[in-house]
C-alpha cells in the first residue's frame, strides 16, 4: 500500500480542549500532521472546522478517520482527497528585504504570481500570496535568493467542489 497525502475536514463542537484532543490523537498514535488550520465556522451552532493534511496508506488513513470520529466532540470527518472534487488554498505573508536589482526582480515575480504587496518600505516588502500549497512554496523558494526574511503560512483551507456542503447534516 502506498502513502498518499490526504486532506481531512473535521467538524467539531467548539468546546474547550477540542483541538488538543484531535492533535493529541495524532501524536499519541504516531500519525503525521503536514498542515493544520482551525477556525470557528458558526457561532450560533458553536462549531469549528479543523482541516488537517496528513499522509499514510489507505489502511492508516481509514484508521485515522475512525479514531477521530471516536472523539466525543467530533461531528464528522470527511476525506477531501477522495476523488478530485476539492479546492485547497493556502495564504502566506512573505517578507523580502533588498535593494536595487533584487528588489525589482522580487516585485516582478510577485506580479507574476499574483501576490499583493501589503506593506512596502524603501528596503523591504511584504507580499500576500494565496494559492495551492505548491505554488506558495515555489514563490517562497524563489524569494530566497532575493532577500527572503521570513514567511508566515496559514496552512490549508479546503472545501469540496459543487453545491453540496462538505459535512452534510
Amino acid at each position: 500500500m502506498q502513502d498518499n497525502q490526504h486532506t481531512l475536514s473535521i467538524l467539531v463542537d467548539n468546546e474547550a480542549g477540542v483541538l488538543a484532543r484531535v492533535i493529541g490523537l495524532f501524536s499519541a498514535r504516531g500519525y503525521n500532521i503536514e498542515s493544520l488550520t482551525v477556525s470557528e465556522i458558526d457561532q450560533a451552532t458553536n462549531m469549528s472546522r479543523i482541516t488537517v493534511v496528513t499522509s499514510g496508506n489507505e489502511k492508516i488513513i481509514t484508521q485515522i478517520k475512525q479514531q477521530i470520529v471516536r472523539l466525543v466532540p467530533v461531528h464528522s470527518v470527511v476525506d477531501l482527497s477522495l476523488g478530485e472534487a476539492s479546492v485547497e488554498r493556502e495564504m502566506a505573508l512573505v517578507k523580502v528585504a533588498g535593494v536595487g536589482q533584487k528588489r525589482v526582480e522580487a516585485l516582478r515575480l510577485a506580479d507574476a504570481f499574483r501576490a499583493h504587496t501589503v506593506d512596502a518600505a524603501v528596503d523591504s516588502f511584504i507580499f500576500e500570496i494565496t494559492g495551492r500549497t505548491d505554488k506558495v512554496t515555489q514563490f517562497i523558494n524563489l524569494m530566497k535568493p532575493l532577500g527572503l526574511v521570513e514567511a508566515s503560512r496559514t496552512g490549508i483551507a479546503a472545501t469540496s467542489r459543487g453545491a453540496e456542503a462538505v459535512h452534510a447534516e
Binding site: 489502511k59 481509514t62 484508521q63 475512525q66 479514531q67 470520529v69 471516536r70
Partner: peptide, 11 residues
C-alpha cells in the same frame, strides 16, 4: 461496537 477496532491490526 467500536468502528476503529475494525481493520486496525488485521484486515
Amino acid at each position: 461496537i467500536d468502528p476503529s477496532s475494525i481493520n486496525k491490526i488485521i484486515q
